[in-house]
Amino acid sequence: MDTRAIPDAISSFREQCMKAFRFMLQSRVLDEKMASLYRGGKIHGGVFLGKGQEAVSAATGMSLLKGDIFSPLIRDGAGRLAFGEPIIDAVRTYMGSALGPMRGREGNVHRGRPAEGLLPMISHLGAMISVVNGMLIGRRFKKIQNTVGAVSLGDGATSTGAFHEALNQAAVEKLPLVLVVTNNQFAYSTPNSRQFACRHLVDKAVGYGVAGHSMDGTDLKACLETISAAVAAARQGQGPQLVVATLLRLCGHGEHDDAHYIDPELRNSALGRDCLVLAESFLTEQGWADAKIIKSWRKDAVRKVEEVVAAVQHEPGPDPYKEDWSALSTRHLSEGSQSL
C-alpha cells in the first residue's frame, strides 16, 4: 500500500494501531514465557499477567511522550514496553538477576526506572497516585511544561483512601494527571458488587471535579482514541483526567490463582473477549495486516523473549555477603550495616 496516498491522520492512526498491537503481542508472549518459567519452578515469588488488559495498557504507554511519567500497575506489561521499558528489565526482575534494575532487592512487577519517569510500584494500592502528583508539582516548580503523569489502577484501588486523597489533591492543584482505571471486574477474588456501589466508576470524576472518560477496554481503537484524548487534555492544562476501561481479567490474580470464582457466563460474555484477538481481527479487517504478517510478528516476539531469557538465565543473583545492607543513602547515619 502506498502510504503517501493516505491522509496523515489516518496513516498515523494506522501506524499507532499496528505499533500498539505489536506491544500487546510482545507483552502476551513475555507473560506466557514468565508463566511457563513459573510453572517450571524457575521464578521465585509470584507472576502476574496482563492477559486481557494489553489494549488499555499499550494505549496508555503509547499516549505518553518521552519525558512523561508513567506509574504502571501489575498488569501493564504492554504499557511498560510502549513507554520504553526493555524486555530484559522484566525478565531480570522476575528471575532475580543482580544485573536488573532492582538488583534482586525487588521482584516481578515491582520494577521501574524512576530516573526515566517509570515508577516502581509499591504493593499498597492507590499509593502511586500522590507520588506522581508530587513529581508533577516538582516539575511545576522547575517550570517544566507540557508534561503528563499517568497512573494505572484497577477497580480495587478506587476503594482506597489513597485514591481519594490523591485524586482530590490532583484536582486542587490542577495537575496534568491521567488516572487510567482498568475495571477488570475483580480485585483478586472480590467482584465489583462488593467493591463499590456507584453506577459506573467514571461517575466518581464529577465528585472530584475532574474530567471523566470511559471506554470498552477490549477495543484497542477505543482505548487509543480515549486515552490519547485524555492525555492531550491533561497536557493542554485541563487538569486531571479519570479514564475508566471496562473488561474482564482473563487470568488469575497471579499465576498461583486459578480464578475459579469467575462465572463462566461472564467469561463467555462480550466483557470476556480477548483484546488481542479483537485487535488482530481489526487490523485484518482494515487490511493493515494479514495472518502471515501477524504470524511473523509473533515469531519475532517469541524470538526476542527467548533470547533475553537465555541470556538472563546465566546472570548471577545478588550475593548476600557483598550486599550493601544500608537503607539510607547517608551512610554514616545508617544502622543497617552494623550487626545488632
Binding site: 500522590s130 507520588v131 502528583n133 508530587g134 516538582g138 516548580f141 486523597e165 489533591q169
Partner: peptide, 28 residues
Amino acid sequence: PDRVIDAPISEDAIIGSAIGSALEGMRP
C-alpha cells in the same frame, strides 16, 4: 509565596507527593 503551600487534609497524599517532588530533585 510560591513555596509555602496549604495542603488538603490528606496526610497520605501529602507524604506521597513529597516523595514524588523529591524524585524531581525538590527538598520538601
